[in-house]
């Protein structure tokens, strides 16, 4: 994966508008420092969190990291490619079930379950994405919704494999070098390591010439087509990559909570993660991370107080966010100047 050599992408390398051209900004080294140092500090803080935080906090942080990875994988579709999916949890669920089944029936040695989860998630996206991407426009919204519901119902009806509505339980803890990881802190480090690699992968995809092409398709598909690109092939590949990373996040989820429910592949999970992307700001990659943190905190902190009616609060957040934060937190920060939201248009 090569990195775009020209400077027409903005400092973050993502959410850039190809039409604005190179902006006179600080030098490459200065930019690296202003971006890299806070990132490094954040990474150190995250890595040292289990040393001073309670196990419950480590667990919540793990959850946030997993949902953040999931949200960023969706952002590759929604924000970068302009394909708003309402069924992305399907691939998350497929990954989670894959990792769970691999751990139960074969091995839970460290990278095997999550890697297989990513692979099967991508395969599921290959199998279903063709139709959704081919149709495009509002049909894409509806078809992804139907695909998500299909996977949800499958998880429920194939109870001999998935455990049906009881969920797939008894997933053994992850093993590294033959030793099972049982303490919340160790599991957290495992999640952190895989999630950071996942973020890095998605960031590289978004920065690559491939990512630039996706943004081009999002902003002006007829023009990209007349330049000789095949929008369908690029969108399809983006869908598969996003499915693979969602599968990876699902695999991590199975390793963390060690039980997988059909609802993890269902509509509410899809809606939740889309909310995280929109709330954070689609197309920025870092915005959805923030959005995922807010969504997980709202659901896990306020949800139990509302007697399990977390989705009520979620719905209110949805409605408010649509009016108040049309570009998400990223829009608030004013870091994406001049970028029109062009997702979801009927191209």
């Amino acid at each position: 994966m090569s990195v775009v050599p020209d400077s027409s992408t903005d400092a973050s390398g993502v959410g850039a508008d190809p039409r604005t051209g190179p902006a006179p900004g600080p030098s490459r080294a200065a930019r690296l420092a202003t971006r890299g140092i806070p990132l490094l500090v954040l990474l150190v803080l995250l890595a040292s969190a289990p040393l001073f935080a309670a196990p419950f906090t480590a667990n919540t942080l793990s959850r946030i990291l997993i949902f953040a990875l999931f949200a960023v994988s969706l952002d590759l579709l929604v924000g970068i490619t302009g394909l708003p999916s309402l069924g992305h949890a399907a691939y998350f669920g497929v990954g989670a079930y894959t990792a769970g089944l691999v751990s139960i029936h074969w091995t839970s040695a460290a990278p095997v379950p999550v890697l297989l989860a990513a692979a099967v998630g991508a395969l599921a996206a290959v199998a279903t994405g063709w139709l959704a991407v081919r149709s495009g426009g509002v049909y894409f919204l509806m078809l992804t919704l139907a695909i998500g519901e299909l996977v949800h119902q499958l998880a429920q009806s194939l109870s001999s494999v998935t455990g049906g509505s009881n969920g797939l339980f008894g997933i053994p803890s992850v093993r590294i070098g033959g030793e099972p990881l049982t303490l919340a802190g160790y599991v957290y480090w495992y999640v952190l390591a895989v999630a950071v690699l996942g973020f890095l992968g998605l960031w590289l995809v978004a920065r690559s010439p491939f990512g630039a092409t996706l943004r081009g398709i999002r902003d002006n598909e007829p023009r990209m087509r007349s330049l000789g690109y095949s929008p369908f092939r690029y969108k399809y590949l983006a869908f598969v990559v996003a499915g693979g990373f969602a599968g990876l996040a699902g695999g991590l989820f199975a390793a963390l909570v060690r039980i997988v429910n059909p609802s993890d592949a269902g509509f509410t999970t899809s809606a939740l993660i889309l909310l995280a992307v929109v709330l954070g700001g689609a197309g920025t990659l870092w915005g959805p991370v923030l959005g995922a943190a807010v969504v997980v905190l709202v659901r896990d902190t306020f949800g139990p107080q509302l007697d399990g009616h977390g989705p009520l609060l979620l719905g209110v957040v949805f409605v408010v966010a649509v009016y108040v934060l049309p570009r998400g937190f990223a829009g608030l920060a004013g870091l994406v100047p001049g970028r029109r939201r062009s997702t979801g248009g009927t191209a």
């Binding site: 929604v78 708003p84 309402l86 509002v138 919204l141 509410t268 809606a271 889309l274 909310l275 929109v278 009616h309 989705p311 009520l312 979620l314 719905g315 209110v316 957040v317 949805f318 409605v319 966010a321 649509v322 049309p326 939201r341 062009s342 997702t343 979801g344 248009g345 009927t346």
Partner: peptide
């Protein structure tokens, strides 16, 4: 605004209605 925004609004409303019913 894009269709997605209206879809999100109605999605939020459907979540609220379903939860109120439950």
């Amino acid at each position: 605004r894009p269709i997605l925004d209206q879809a999100l609004l109605t999605l939020g409303i459907s979540l609220i209605v379903a939860e109120v019913l439950s």
